[in-house]
Amino acid sequence: MIKAEKLTKIFRTDEVETTALNAVSFEIKRGEFVAIMGPSGCGKSTLLNILGLLDNPTTGGYYFLDNEVSKSTERQRANLRKQNIGFVFQNFNLIDELTVFENVELPLIYLGMPSRDRKKRVDEVLAQMQISHRAKHFPLQLSGGQQQRVAVARAVVAKPALILADEPTGNLDSAHGEEVMNLLNDLNVNGTTIIMVTHSQRDAEYSQRVIRLFDGQIINENIKKSFV
């Protein structure tokens, strides 16, 4: 599903040149649950941005669903993204002015799905995330755990093949964190590929494989569970 070949990302400011990723290569197969770990500033988020088609690498090749996308335009990336990738963030990133329902509905609107189908699909996902009773509430009326469940609902509503989660439990207490991890695990069991950046060893336990980054390079890649 994903193939990275010598991905390099260099950030330049007026005087300083920082290499965030340095010739990173790996492959992720459909249905995998991969955790990316490493200390702050090691390039985890940069990698996730490139994998999520939010950014292009400076050099190197990136194949997403067999398409070479490292030189794609913003528009092409946006199109691929909205059909195939869902995002979950540490700080939930819900739009405060939209209700739970509307937040979850957003990707479907940009996909151009008809209103009736949208309603059906959103209702399904909210039920799946056990948050249907909160559909008309605004994000600020919810607990952190509930907000993150809404965010997960939004990430999966368009049935993406890939979910990218950026420290999904970082802002949650352990009980709520576990809830969210269970949700992600369920999704993975049902066939969704998941790539998760995390600091938490506990969360990493849910994955089948951990990619460890240090100073922009992969230092260790270990398969924890058998992946069949």
Binding site: G52, R75, A78, R81, Q83, L94, L106, P107, Y110
Partner: peptide, 16 residues
Amino acid sequence: AREIGIRKVAGAHRTQ
């Protein structure tokens, strides 16, 4: 800014 980011991630084009 955050709203714009979210919308972009959710698939909004700049023109939209």
